[in-house]
C-alpha cells in the first residue's frame, strides 16, 4: 500500500495537472470564439464567389479550352494532396483524424499506380508525413508548412505554388483534406476538390456549411451581363477562388483546432477531478486505518502494563 506521503504527492501532482488543463480549456475557448468569428466573417466572400462562378460556368457551357484551374489538365496521373492540421497538439483526435484520412487516400492512390505529392499545411501533419512518406512531401520554396495565424498571405503562397505545379504539368488533380467545423464538439475530416474545380461538388460542400446558399440558388436564375467578357472574368476569378477556398479551409481548421482542444481539455479536467476524488478517498481511508492501528497498539500496550 502506498504511504501517506506518496499519496499526498500524487494528489498534488494531479491537482496541478488539472490547473493546467483547465487553463488551457479557457484559453482555447477564448481563441475559438475569435477563430469562429473570423471563419464566419469570411464566409460571405466565399459564397458570393461560388455563386458568381456557378453563373459563369452556366454562361460558358462546356466549350473546350477552359482554363486548367477550372477543368484540370485532362489527365489524372499526378495527385497533389493537401492535408490541413494544426501546428500544435493536445487537441484530442483533431490532427490524428486528418492524418489518418489523408493516409488512406494516399495509400489508395499509390495502389492505383498514381503519382502522389503531399503538401501539408500545419506542422503536425508535416511532421507526420515527413516521417511516413519522406519522398512525397513537397511545398513552396521558403514555406514552413505552418498554419500560423492564418493569414491570407499563407493561402496566397500555397495557391501560387499550386498554380506553378499546374503550369509545369507537375500536378493534374489537387485535393485538400481538412477538418470541417461543424460545431465545438464535432469536426469532420472532409475532402475538398480544388482542381479540377467540381462546382457541383463544392456547391454541395458549401451547402452543408452554409444553409444560406438555398436562398442564393433562387437568385441564380437571373441572367447576367459580363464586363469584360466571361472568359476574361473567369481568368481573373479562378486564381482568387483558389485562394479563397484555401483560406476558408484554413480558417475552419483554426476554429476546429481550438474547438477540439477545448473539448479535449474539458474532459481531461474532468478526469483529473475524478482521479483526485479517488485518490483523496484512498488517502483518507489509509489515514484512518493508520490511526486505528496506532490506537490499537496504544490500548493493547496500556492493557499489558
Amino acid at each position: 500500500m502506498a504511504s501517506l506521503k506518496e499519496l499526498r504527492a500524487r494528489i498534488n501532482s494531479v491537482k496541478s495537472t488539472k490547473k493546467i488543463t483547465s487553463a488551457m480549456k479557457m484559453v482555447a475557448a477564448a481563441k475559438m470564439n475569435r477563430a469562429e468569428r473570423r471563419s464566419r466573417e469570411a464566409k460571405p466572400f466565399a459564397t458570393t464567389m461560388q455563386r458568381i462562378l456557378v453563373n459563369l460556368k452556366e454562361s460558358l457551357g462546356d466549350r473546350p479550352g477552359l482554363p486548367k484551374l477550372l477543368a484540370g489538365t485532362g489527365k489524372q496521373d499526378i495527385h497533389l494532396i493537401i492535408p490541413m492540421s494544426s501546428d500544435r497538439g493536445l487537441a484530442g483526435g483533431f490532427n490524428g483524424n486528418i492524418n489518418r484520412a489523408t493516409r488512406g487516400i494516399v495509400e489508395k492512390l499509390l495502389k492505383e499506380g498514381k503519382n502522389v505529392k503531399i503538401c501539408p499545411i500545419g506542422f503536425k501533419s508535416y511532421v507526420y508525413f515527413r516521417g511516413e512518406y519522406p519522398n512525397l512531401v513537397v511545398g513552396p520554396e521558403g514555406g514552413d508548412h505552418r498554419l500560423g495565424n492564418v493569414t491570407f498571405d499563407t493561402a496566397d503562397q500555397i495557391a501560387s505554388y499550386i498554380e506553378k505545379l499546374l503550369q509545369d504539368e507537375q500536378c493534374d488533380v489537387c485535393t485538400v483534406v481538412y477538418n470541417q467545423f461543424k460545431n465545438v464538439m464535432l469536426q469532420v475530416p472532409t475532402e475538398l476538390p480544388l482542381i479540377p474545380l467540381n462546382i457541383a461538388a463544392t456547391e454541395k460542400h458549401e451547402e452543408t456549411l452554409d444553409e444560406k446558399l438555398a436562398v442564393h440558388t433562387e437568385q441564380l436564375q437571373a441572367e447576367y451581363l459580363f464586363e469584360p467578357e466571361p472568359e476574361e472574368v473567369l481568368h481573373r476569378l479562378l486564381p482568387q477562388n483558389l485562394r479563397v477556398q484555401l483560406f476558408s479551409a484554413m480558417l475552419e481548421t483554426n476554429a476546429g483546432e481550438q474547438g477540439a482542444r477545448m473539448t479535449a481539455m474539458d474532459s481531461a479536467t474532468r478526469n483529473a477531478g475524478k482521479a483526485i476524488d479517488k485518490l483523496s478517498l484512498h488517502y483518507n481511508r489509509t489515514r484512518q486505518a493508520n490511526i486505528t492501528n496506532e490506537l490499537t497498539e496504544v490500548i493493547s500496550g496500556a492493557n499489558a502494563a
Binding site: 458568381i52 453563373n55 459563369l56 437571373a222 441572367e223 447576367y224 451581363l225 459580363f226 464586363e227 469584360p228 476574361e232 472574368v233 481573373r236
Partner: peptide, 10 residues
C-alpha cells in the same frame, strides 16, 4: 443604382 441590369463586373 436600383433597377440596374444584373451584371458581373471586374
Amino acid at each position: 443604382m436600383e433597377g440596374h441590369v444584373p451584371m458581373i463586373l471586374l
